[in-house]
Design a binder for these strands. Structure first.
Lengths: 248, 248
DNA sequence: TAGTGGTCTAGACCACGTG
DNA sequence: ACGTGGTCTAGACCACTAC
């Protein structure tokens, strides 16, 4: 049995919450890599000295948070960033009529810069700390629709190169995962409306002054640690941002 | 024991899913009103002839969907539309800096109209069927920020009057709930960017041509039945739409 | 004190995937 | 045939609320 009492606070954590915490810590430390199976529930129960029901309750919550995936008969897996998952959970732009489709990405620029006060605060790094700034143009049905600007702390992404971005044959979050063992598990987004400036307008092939949707995203890994900022400008003439809170 | 086998399909539904379906049906039929406690888990187990664990699993899912609320030591309640819940789960506009606050609503107009093809399809009613169309101006910190246009099928809201809208001292969803026993449990929203036309600009006190965020919401009740359409125009100069999928 | 939901356990059986 | 997760049960004890 695990000790769930805290001498400092006197608080009593439920056992399954403690198990969940331990599982999340092991995940954050990379004990189990994305795409591979965890030990069986029976074994995890033995490891943590709890019943299988308690393990299941902990896993239930991690599955609800899309950190783990269960497959009956096979095992429980660390959620992996394949194209399908990224499209489904992290790409919210849909055609005004018709189904969702994966975007084609074109790398526009890759630079080093210093974090401004705002970005630094959101990334929880020091103001002026070095960051990578990557700009991408996303096409849907061969038409430019989204202009992305990604900000990454150099500290977490040492050695990241333009080549890696240009030559990747996977999604960006897959790149983070494979090269840096950084697993994006959640994102928070703030949306506003703005007008296209000249350079953006040209890239999106619209008139300057066209209304655009601006999305400010913070991507988070385990324990809600921010790892990436992304600002997207979206031409919503033929596409929309889909938000379905409550389901999914 | 409930029969969960289906002669037609041969499909085997888990018992707790069947219990969940029966609970949802009772909720939709108004057997338990919002704000009141359901029978205890023990009694529900007796009623459906299942163990308490199975009842709990069914309730777990309804709680996750925010249809029920558990209170330890008191009971399980039908989620009620108070100001707090509406603000938290159905109002996604937040100040660019600062915390969320409830909006002040001013009724602009209340009319009867016929549903266009689009609205009819979204509301699952016949094209040309009568609808109410209500327009509201929402203020935050005494500044106009949101312009709402609500479309309601007359069929579901017979006898709805301008007076009821003007003199309500509760939220709109509370009105639906109390007067028509219609409980909005979920919403799906599609966002795009647009430009303020003259009348909207005047009401929102911005220049014509200012970029605005447009939100197309479909509000759903039990079994995902659509009951309300709402188009919001938001001045995002000092406010943003907050979307946190994955949590909440 | 009684009743409620919250946690934890232990075990049986089923459905699914792999060999 | 075997191991995995999925379902269902039964019971014990705890924490909280109301009276």
């Amino acid at each position: 049995m695990i000790d769930t009492s805290s001498a400092e606070t006197g608080t009593q954590l439920p056992l399954y919450k403690e198990v969940k915490r331990l599982l999340t810590m092991s995940l954050a430390e990379g004990e189990w890599q994305p795409g591979v199976a965890l030990p069986s529930e029976t074994r995890l129960g033995e490891r943590f000295r709890v019943s299988i029901g308690t393990v299941r309750k902990a896993i239930d919550e991690l599955v609800a948070e899309r950190i783990l995936v269960r497959h009956q008969g096979r095992g429980t897996y660390v959620a992996s960033h394949n194209a399908r998952r990224t499209l489904f959970h992290f790409f919210h732009i849909v055609p005004a009529s018709g189904g969702k489709e994966p975007p084609q990405t074109e790398l526009l620029s890759f630079e080093r810069a210093k974090a401004g006060a705002n970005d630094a605060a959101r990334l929880n790094i020091a103001p002026g700390a070095p960051v990578f700034r990557i700009r991408n143009l996303l096409r849907l049905a061969d038409r430019p629709v989204v202009l992305d600007e990604i900000t990454l702390p150099v500290e977490r992404f040492r050695g990241l190169s333009e080549k890696m971005f240009r030559e990747r044959d996977s999604t960006i979050y897959q790149l983070y995962q494979e090269r840096y063992s950084i697993n994006v598990v959640r994102s928070a987004e703030r949306l506003s409306a703005t007008l296209a400036d000249r350079p953006s307008a040209k890239l999106l092939q619209v008139a300057a002054g066209t209304p655009l949707l601006r999305i400010n995203r913070t991507a988070l890994t385990y324990h809600n640690v921010p790892v990436e900022l992304r600002t997207s400008l979206v031409n919503t003439a033929d596409h929309e941002y889909f938000s379905d809170l409550g389901k999914n």
